[in-house]
Design a protein around this nucleic acid. Structure first.
Lengths: 300, 300
DNA sequence: AAGAGTGGTGCATTTTTTGCACCACCCTTG
DNA sequence: CAAGGGTGGTGCAAAAAATGCACCACTCTT
């Protein structure tokens, strides 16, 4: 698609903030790039960038144009995807922005399943925290968004959503391991392994703790999955996760997951969808379908 | 916008049905045009046109691409319009597809009013019958649609609608001229001037006539406005029109308009709007606003 | 005051596009 | 059946457009 090369150039200049830097990453001369920009501005009749001493910056007209460019480029990708799908081949790139809670095991196995059927499709999976998923969609950095406990959904087109209770994960020998349901104050008596506050699970826990007047002591604060679901958890530490992120072989590892009473910690929501008003490429749409079907089958 | 020249070429080839004809209307060599097409198909990886002995025809992939092209081109027009509007200037072209009932006096005066304020804006007004307005929008042949008694509204985004009763127009000396309301059978006793059946008014009349078992005798069947509202109507002929299309100076012309009992002929609807899912250019949006405000003021 | 960064420009070179002439093909028409 | 007018496709030379290089003017930091 050589004819939307100018678009790519503009986008790169906007991102780099300077013609020279953009030229470098585009592997052309600053001179050539500069002239292309001038030509575009001339055709458009207005400046797109304001010239500063340290580089260039998009002005309002440029913002409008850039939004159009991003729409246009991903719409073109969709068209190519649809056309390729006509001839039976399924190609393209599925770009996903997902909360870390989804990346533990669920999404990986879904991608594996899809790719075994359509090897021509590539994937790009980005970990984004609650509020950042929607932004990734707006900036056309991702086609599909999967969020646990989203901050807002103004530009989010929800295709499917599902409740996900919070589980407490511990060693089989833990005093709480035999319970059917846990109260939050019971957990709070043990040393906790917690994630950063940007995680949806942590957020739910914190809010509940405040409401109930409980203090959560984090002996380890980490985002590394290895700590949250540990092979050899020697002590009485507890960690938390949502249902979908708990691996199947948890028991083999000598561990158990016990649900927390939803009256203490309310169940969170997983939202699956894409940018409002967009038609996403065929491969992405099919993958979305597969994911929602799988979710509905397992938790619906 | 030179970079979307290829789009223009494809659209023209599709419209002309032959590379040579398209080349002629694009004022370039068939050879050059052919090569551009081949390049595009090569970049896309698929054929866009099937080659026939008498020319070329879009295949399915081409249909998908063409839809994208049309969206892209009118979206670009919108972006340019928005950018121009930033600097205070209002430019652009307002393209309207409207039922003939609206073209008598209403739209002309609205256009005049708008252009006196924004001389930089040009207009394109197309007369389309009931079912054709929506098609014009779908093919991006028009930004704004105004229909009296539309056939369907599947892809139509209604911004405003209003009821419009049918009036009977006659000379002041006509026996029916003094009535406050007319029954349809009263009209049927006189010679009628009717439009083609594709008009919304005619359609309403015909359906009512069938329902009531009345026979409408058209002594003149014409679409010419001069006949419908005639300066010197010598005989007792009657014509019909809707409220908005009746000129202000009807009385000066020695004529009167008497409403028909809505129990006989139901009131029709005028729908004002644009293609669903589209953001129309600034100038078009403002004009739409003006039209709906005017309608609401006069008939709301 | 020096230096490193920025965007802009004249000119020769390279790359791309175009026009011309022509080919092979198909269908209509005489 | 043959001729003729239409179609899309292609080799080659000319024209046009884009690029790279060297350099300028400028601003801000050091």
């Amino acid at each position: 698609m050589r004819h939307l090369l100018p678009y790519k150039y503009i986008e790169e200049i906007a991102k780099a903030g300077s013609i020279r830097k953009a030229a470098e990453s585009l592997a052309i001369t600053p001179s050539a790039l500069n002239r292309r920009l001038l030509t575009i501005e001339d055709e458009l009749g207005v400046q797109i960038f304001e010239r500063l001493a340290v580089g260039v910056r998009l002005n309002t007209a440029g913002e409008i144009l850039l939004e159009h460019i991003r729409n246009q480029m991903s719409d073109m990708a969709r068209v190519q995807s649809q056309i390729a799908d006509l001839s039976g081949q399924r190609r393209g790139n599925v770009s996903i922005a997902a909360s870390p809670e989804l990346l533990g095991s669920f999404l990986a196995s879904e991608v594996r399943k899809y790719q075994s059927e359509f090897p021509g499709v590539t994937f790009k999976v980005q970990q984004k925290f609650r509020g950042d998923v929607e932004r990734a969609l707006i900036e056309h950095d991702a086609d599909i968004g999967i969020v646990y406990e989203p901050v807002k959904l103004a530009d989010f087109q929800t295709i499917y959503n599902i409740v996900q209770p919070v589980y407490c994960i511990m060693d089989q020998s833990h005093p709480l391991a035999k319970k059917q349901k846990l109260r939050l104050y019971e957990c709070a008596e043990y040393p906790l392994i917690l994630t950063e506050r940007s995680w949806g699970v942590r957020n739910l826990l914190e809010q509940s703790a405040i409401r109930l007047g409980i203090n959560l002591r984090a002996v380890i604060q980490t985002d590394a999955r290895g700590f949250l679901i540990n092979y050899e958890r020697e002590n009485d530490q507890l960690s938390f996760d949502i249902q979908i992120n708990i691996p199947d072989n948890l028991e083999e590892r000598g561990m158990v997951a016990v649900p927390i009473n939803p009256l203490d910690v309310p169940e969170g929501f997983i939202f699956v969808g894409h940018l409002k008003g967009r038609t996403i490429p065929v491969a992405s749409a099919r993958f979305l379908e597969q994911v929602t079907t799988e979710m509905a089958g397992r938790f619906g």
